[in-house]
Design a binder for these strands. Sequence first.
DNA 1: TTACCTGCAAACTATTTGCAGTACT
DNA 2: AGTACTGCAAATAGTTTGCAGGTAA
Lengths: 154, 154
Amino acid sequence: MPQFLPEQLEDIRSVFSDFLKKKNLRQTPERFKVFDEVYASDDHFDADELFVRLKAKEINVSRATVYNSLELLMECNLVVRHQFGNKQAKYERSFRYWQHDHLICEDCNEIHEFCDPRIQAIQEMVSEIFEFEITHHSLQMFGHCRRDNCPNRH
Amino acid sequence: MPQFLPEQLEDIRSVFSDFLKKKNLRQTPERFKVFDEVYASDDHFDADELFVRLKAKEINVSRATVYNSLELLMECNLVVRHQFGNKQAKYERSFRYWQHDHLICEDCNEIHEFCDPRIQAIQEMVSEIFEFEITHHSLQMFGHCRRDNCPNRH
DNA sequence: TTACCTGCAAACTATTTGCAGTACT
DNA sequence: AGTACTGCAAATAGTTTGCAGGTAA
């Protein structure tokens, strides 16, 4: 996932800001601290990781507020949540980074991203056959990477 | 998913039985009660649902044993577990019913199954590109069905 | 000023674990 | 007979909720 330039970040920040305004929600510093931390990271993280990262920077935002803010960021499509099979949800920023799926090594939990247009085609076909309006999908492939230093290597 | 004939069921039951024997695990009545209930149902259920179904038939098996037995049934490929985004896992029987994916209505939670060979092709390509040995995948499509009586219809 | 928001801790939900007694093999 | 298994209840993990202040608008 690419890193954003400062001015792009400013634009994305205002997407969040506008969303809050439109919904008559408050622009609290905590919400923007969560936003900043999310958009400073370019990986997949869980809610607690985000909480810890903030704490490490001596930014004190409660866990409850982290969850609340992630929820809002998901509502305005700046964050997506994934359920990779473990019990805790993983999040990632998603501004202009819609369609991609995940490949996960079950030995070292490394996550790779891929994108294949055939998935879109399958989606359209399934949509037609079942007469569904499909809004999104979730595809993960699991297996074993072949890195030499992968722990518990298969 | 098809229902099984009594003699097929007997064969599948012996797959479980043989598995337990090979692993030096005990053939307890509780384990077979769980097996029977799983193979009597042709839908997607969670652990608690199975527990309740057994209870309704006055078959008393503890929740802990339900989880334990489902784990064993997964080990011998008679059951698969799915994480559909909600926090509780869904299970379904999987004897000779390997490759299929799921389409889920977010309004009524109805689950449909589909199968598309292109997914296999994508899997092979991803496997090659990332040098992974892919063991399995998990694909769900989410959306809105168009049934008239779908609650909270979109 | 006035709700909405935050932080805290308690509640909750799904699942796992520890332990004493039970029952396969 | 011996040890794995069961049921129960308590522990755990991730997330949500209730409530008493705090604060954006």
